[in-house]
Structure formats: C-alpha cells, structure tokens
Amino acid sequence: MELPVLAALNTERAARRATVLVTEMADGAQRLIKAADIAADPLAEIVDKQLRMGKSGMVEAAGVQYFLTVQAPHPRIVVTGAVHISQAMAPMAKLLDLDVVIIDPRTAFATPDRFPEVTLLTEWPDEAIKGLGLDAYTAFVALTHDPKIDDPGLEAALRSDCFYVGALGSRKTHGRRLERLNAAGFDEVATGRIHAPIGLDIGAVSPAEIALAILGEIVNTLRGPRRTAA
C-alpha cells in the first residue's frame, strides 16, 4: 500500500466519512473511493452494497477479483451528563473501541480531572450537538436526571438517525419524560426509540455496572444478536 493512500484512508475515518479501499488481487493495484465518489465509480453497485453492510470482503467483477476494505464511520457515544456513570463508562467504551463525547454545561461536573482523555463539551446539549452532528453511527445516552439538560439532547437525538437512544431514570421518571416529549411534538413511534429503563437487565447496581449494562445494550443494538434462543 502506498503511504499517501493509507494516510488518506485514516484522514477520511477521522472525519467520519465512509471510504472503500479497492485492492486488485492479481497485481496488488489499489485505489481509494470516497463515499461521495462511489456513484461515479465503475464498481459502484458492488462497492455500495459492501458499504451498506459495513463489511470488508472479497468481490468479483467481470472476472477480476478485488478485496474491498470498507471503512464505515467509527461508532461513538454522545452522553449528556458528566456524572459518576459516565466516569465509569468512558474507559470501558475506550476498550470497546467506541469513541465517547460527554456534554454537560455544569463546569463543576465536566472537569478534565474527572474525565481524562475524553472529549468534554461544557455547552448546552442543543448547542454542542449542532457542532457534532448525530449520524447513524452515533449512540445517544442521557444520564443527568435533569430535564433541562437531558431533554434538549434527547430531542436532537430523536430528530437524527442515531442507532441507539437511551435515557436513565425510573419508569415514573420516564413517564413524565414521555409527556414532555409528546408535548414537544414527538409521537409514540419517535419516543418508542428510547431505551428506558436504560441498559440490559443484568441487575446493575453500581455506576460501573450500570455503565456495563448500557454499553452491553449499545453493542447489542450495533451488532445485533447472533444466537437465537433454542
């Protein structure tokens, strides 16, 4: 692989843009197709199909064998609440190769001391999310218990293609949340996307266990169950 091709591949990934590297198996010739250029490519149909599956793989076109290295944007979690659960979640998410962005306008909570090596935004969620953009490779998690902070984030998430939306709180808290969201114009189909109570039902008690339950649910939504019940 030519180093400029490798560098371009890494640049596209860092910018959350899909790309496909095409390697011709017979002679090792390579070229990079950016998402915006796929439609005009001779291999458009096959490249597009592979990208939609989000999977690298061998393909054949007109008797020629190619390997497609598919780079779908990196999955990430956008969290409102620089709270105890998100402190536990940040290092766990890192091990899972999930990027984390934590939003909390309360600067007493959102400190680099409490959140080393995490992207911290001390803005209100609606402002912060405008800058981030939520896409189909983003999970949104509301953890503050404070409607002033969580609700604007949830509303932005429900208007987006986020693959996962979750909100912390008891059934009662969530009931009141649904009333507010309905009043704000979100119907049952929209609010039905919210995972609440949040997380897999593993009886989580501590902040780290709740973080594990939430991350388990996010991974499950991202990858889908692979084993069916016997």
Binding site: L3, L6, A7, L9, N10, R13, H74, L95, D97
Partner: peptide
C-alpha cells in the same frame, strides 16, 4: 487494546 481502526493509524505513524 489495539483495535482495527488504530492499527491503520499505527501503520501510518510507523511508516
């Protein structure tokens, strides 16, 4: 823990 995404970044930085 090295993941597939940072392997390509590692390859670039090593090169």
């Amino acid at each position: 823990i090295s993941t597939d995404s940072d392997i390509l970044a590692t390859a670039e930085s090593w090169a």
